[in-house]
Amino acid sequence: MNSEANLTRPAKVLVTKIGLDGHDRGSRIVAAALRDAGLEVVYTAPWQEIPTVAKLAMEEDVDVIGVSSLATDHLLVPKLMKELHKAGLDYVKVIVGGIVPDNEEQDLLDAGVARVFHPGSDMADIVGTVQMLAGEAQNDTARQL
């Protein structure tokens, strides 16, 4: 629900994949579900480099980045978090979806990832979480004028 999510404008989300894994079926399904829930989704091809993702997030002024990872690329996400910090994009919320071993989830959360979605996740939960995080990002004091 938008009212619960506290959105001040349509949520803008970047759905992307970093690293060498090209399995983009999952990211496409999530992108389509977010679109159908009324979100504005910037979609990229897989194999993005980390500095590119940070530049893209800056240019598009997104609220949330969703990283899909099915073949160990989640291990690159802490690097992405550092790159976002360097670019002054600390308010951007990052979620990871795909195959993340249970014992590595905490590493991602410690690096600043807001939420990790595992196989079998409920799409409504994913959409609701993204909306809520987008609302938080939009209301971040660093972004107010």
């Binding site: 992108a31 679109r35 989704v41 979609y43 590119t52 530049k55």
Partner: peptide, 22 residues
């Protein structure tokens, strides 16, 4: 385009401009 039904959108034009993304 935004979806006339949900208001959502997939913004994918920049996929074709990826070679300049750095």
């Amino acid at each position: 385009p935004s979806s006339p039904l949900s208001g959502g959108a997939i913004l994918g034009d920049r996929i074709r401009m990826a070679e300049h993304s750095h």
